[in-house]
Amino acid sequence: MALSREQVAMRVAQELKDGYYVNLGIGIPTLVANYVPAGIEVMLQSENGLLGMGPYPTDAEVDADMINAGKETVTAIKGAAIFSSAESFAMIRGGHVDLTVLGAFEVDQNGNIASWMIPGKLVKGMGGAMDLVAGAQNIVVTMTHADKYGSSKLLDSCTLPLTGMGCVKKIVTDLAVLEVKDGAFHLLERAPGISVEEIQQKTAGTLIINGDIPEMRF
């Protein structure tokens, strides 16, 4: 079975390490905050200027001046810091954020990512995504392995305008965990019950399969 959105988030959460500063994008990446492994502490960075993002507020805590990068009302944990957008992107661009998790339309075997623009459709903007992919030490992309028509989103070369070049190192899809290196996708794990053949069939770019590929564990 292909993974649910929650299961993809659970698998990404295994990439978190104690003491990490992490920026989570909108969508599945946001869900990762719900599955931080027991016994480790991570600090969530929200690029509008908050380090130490907490959960949504209770009704009584709602404050129009406390929002996250998705413009949702949010809280700050004890020990949080709030700062300007310039300071926030100094952290991001300067490589101080340990891990960024974001979605994408396409990723290719050279680590290029396209996530913000489909020509012919209305372009809303890249927000902070280009800065995040250029700056983070580690980038994990979450997406479905293929689009709704069955076409692969893991390509030899992105067809859409890029968000960043050569920056993606790891991908967690609904079918597999892959590493991007040396101009190829390397299959690390497969979703429970998903065959290597199916992953191969849905990966348009070069896929390296080394030995037995274990199933993901949750």
Binding site: P55, Y56, P57, I67, E72, T73
Partner: peptide, 13 residues
């Protein structure tokens, strides 16, 4: 006015 764009809340403890 301080309008809120996306009001998200969790249930109180």
């Amino acid at each position: 006015e301080k309008r809120i764009e996306r009001r998200m809340v969790r249930q109180g403890e």
